[in-house]
Amino acid sequence: MQTDTESNQLFENLYSEHHHWLKGWLKSRLGCGEQASDLAQDTFIKVLAQRREGELRSPRAFLSSIARNLMVDMFRRRSIEQAYLEVLAHQPEPVAISPETRYDIVETLLEIDRLLDDLGERPRSIFLMAQIDGLSFVDISRRLNVSVNTVRKHFIRAMTRCLLLVGD
């Protein structure tokens, strides 16, 4: 076991040696210094929260892999938020939505987006037609001009993928 002082010292070393580099790494990808600063901070907060013990063998690879995931989350969240606002703006009837509800909806959409991410266009679309649009397999098969059995196969593939990712 390490004492708290030791682990604080390790963290401080990590921060002072690599913070500047990480900001540069992020800036080269984001093209924006302010965002890069924010994400660099978030990265170190994640590292703190992980309470790792001992020294890292390749600290920069470790930091950049955390930063990369944060960046991916940020791109995803931004694309969903923007799309959601645009879709709302195009609704025939204006809808008032409380900030809490909006937050919940965006979180839900983010989760579904994440689950469906690496599915091909066809299984993804079949899954959404069945689960969101509420179409029967027969309706879907007519629309896509494929057999019901094909729809079923793609649906099961898509759902299995979701079940893998959704976790317990």
């Binding site: 694309s79 923007q82 909806i105 579904i112 689950l115 689960q131």
Partner: peptide
């Protein structure tokens, strides 16, 4: 997990989910 997935999908508002997801992608 099936039930968990179903709860997530049920929480998504039908009218806007498909268009939002497609447009974000």
């Amino acid at each position: 997990r099936v039930e968990k997935l179903q709860r997530t999908l049920d929480a998504a508002p039908r009218a806007i989910t498909r268009s939002t997801l497609d447009s974000a992608r």
